[in-house]
Amino acid sequence: MLKGRHLIDPMDFTTYELDEIFSLAEKIIEDEDRFKDACRGKLLATLFYEPSTRTRFSFEAAMLRLGGSVIGFSEPNSSSVAKGESIRDTIRTISCYADIAVMRHPKEGAPKLASMYSSIPVINAGDGGHQHPTQTLTDLLTIKCLKGQFSNLTIGLCGDLKFGRTVHSLIKAMSRYENNRFILISPKELRVPDYIRKEVLDKKGIEYVEVEKLEEVIGELDILYMTRIQRERFFNEEEYLRLKDSYILDMEKVNRAKEDMIIMHPLPRVNEIDYEVDEDKRACYFKQAKYGMYVRMALIMKLLGVEENA
């Protein structure tokens, strides 16, 4: 039962509960019109303590497409937060007005704290470099819709695997399904943290390899998940110059990939995917953004418990 629950960590829900959300999302994709009044009379509060246009728009679009309404702030200076109000007091007050709240905050654990004092469901829309669970739901729905399954996949994760929270969450989430294999593509100094290797991959006996160059492994992949590497993350300039092209996806590399591989990216992209790739049928990152909205629609409905009205 998801009604009344919070979503703070990508692993808060069981795979069974996630399936419920994805099934509803697929119904919405199939016949969106049927859900246009599903949240009529319901109010979503968007509490964005730092700017994030993309995530906020995705949540707002989701609620509006369900016939609900939205209130909120998009940066703390325009709210009572500027007067020094605590997170606890803010969420307690908002709970009086809204039916569900979405929070983004630069401090880690802020949505968790809010959920402890809230009488309405709280969704974590990103807390610093900590968690961003609806990005994981987005990634999973994209995989479900485009690959048709969560099992028996070879998943390549490319870029900054050390600091990229979306990558860590996706590895954890996909490790819950059977027979997946990971190819982790990054410079040595930006490999996945030890705890992901030891506590997730090794613990569950999941097959994985760590390589430095994308072009060497792209042909094996069912999914390629690209992330950006910031230049300052490289150990030294020499390493950057030696490897930088390995982490830029262009058509030369895409041509070596399977015909049905899908290319994903949490967006925004900077220069890690060449614009020429956008036209290739394997480029799925803009579809992924759309799935992000659909999965948020399904999530809002499930947490509000309004499915039966649709």
């Binding site: 605590s86 997170i87 606890r88 905050h105 630069p106 401090k107 880690e108 654990g109 802020a110 968790k112 704290l113 807390d127 610093g128 470099g129 900590h130």
Partner: peptide, 13 residues
Amino acid sequence: KNPRCVTSIEPNI
């Protein structure tokens, strides 16, 4: 001790 933790800013937590 994590300076990025919400406990560093929220009063009476």
